[in-house]
Design a protein around this nucleic acid. Sequence first.
DNA 1: TTTACTTTCAAACGCGTGTTTGATATGTTG
DNA 2: CAACATATCAAACACGCGTTTGAAAGTAAA
Lengths: 211, 211
Amino acid sequence: MSEHHEQTRARLVEAAREVFSQYGFQGATVREICRRADANVAAVNYHFGSKDGLLAEALNFAQLKKLQTENAVADACPEKRLRLFIHDFMLMLLDEKDGSRQCQIMARELVDPTPALDQIVIEAIIPLREFLAGLVREIVGDNMSEAELIRCVQSLFGQCLFYRHSYPVLQRIYPELHYDHQEIEAVASHIADFSLAAMNQLALRTKNAQP
Amino acid sequence: MSEHHEQTRARLVEAAREVFSQYGFQGATVREICRRADANVAAVNYHFGSKDGLLAEALNFAQLKKLQTENAVADACPEKRLRLFIHDFMLMLLDEKDGSRQCQIMARELVDPTPALDQIVIEAIIPLREFLAGLVREIVGDNMSEAELIRCVQSLFGQCLFYRHSYPVLQRIYPELHYDHQEIEAVASHIADFSLAAMNQLALRTKNAQP
DNA sequence: TTTACTTTCAAACGCGTGTTTGATATGTTG
DNA sequence: CAACATATCAAACACGCGTTTGAAAGTAAA
């Protein structure tokens, strides 16, 4: 019995991740989730109390945290680690085959806030910001104020999220666009090239202006 | 009579821009729009046929186009014109006091597509991309492939849109954040500094690698 | 088997949505 | 004035939503 119970729960969570990441929280319907999970409409409220409860369960920051810890212990210079991080991050954001729809749900939450956004900000976004800020600080050294550094981090985030958030537009401009591994690689490389060039240059200027 | 008619229409369009930009198309309700316009619920369908029709009317790319044409005839070097453009664009995206809610509606459409997105892409986004691509081409010269150049334009867009799309998150991280003219100026300056540094550096590398 | 508990299910509830209706008021025209 | 077109309005309609209900099915312990 407990086995089938867990099966239904698990199927609901998995279907919820699919539907939430595809249509957003507001656009997703409980009925569609249950249809994909092959479960009754009442199952969501029985197992999770409400649609909100299901969203909270569907969110899972494990992969995002794993990405950071693995990056932190990587044996490479800060520049290479930033390249690695951007690459992995873009894979999480764009790869449809990947099971990491949680990150895509998060990306939607940024735009369409739900009651779960507070949890997301505290548990996922703020740590991620601080991680990236530390990495950027390693790259630019002390030749940049904290305020400038935070802005650089936001420039990084902005570039990464753009490709996810603006996908509906990009698809209309380039009908043949699809994010296979080659395209993701190219995008990640550009963002890294662009941002490293910018940050090194900005740090250099501050350094030259100081003495 | 025609005067009062036009008044109601105009009030509906203005209220619709407010509500659409605030809650998005899906989140906005016809009743709320009519409440703000001090009109009957049936007024929307009478004057515009449907909620979709009202959205199409509420969209207006005049200000966005004016921004481009004025920028094109500005008497300044490409770098300065890019700075000017980013500044004006961020004002359109972020300034709440400004009457330019159309651009904010557009920014929401990028994420939550509606049937109006096709029109937006064709009439506003593609021309804007080409305008920016031309400006960037002036800056980097021939030292960059077309593909690289487009990616730079997307990095620009990504940074600009980030501050609008991620506003709910930024507000939770910085509760005291609000986009006054000073803050907008600071953000625009950073994006310009960051991007110009990146593009000049990338162009330089390509140039040095070629001969 | 009986009892108690958990899980599933079809059906319905309450609510909010965009939209339609038919009447009423208002202005225009012959 | 009378006839007509236009605009507004309260009310209702049809639909989809998240959620609830009460019965049926399934499972485990006594």
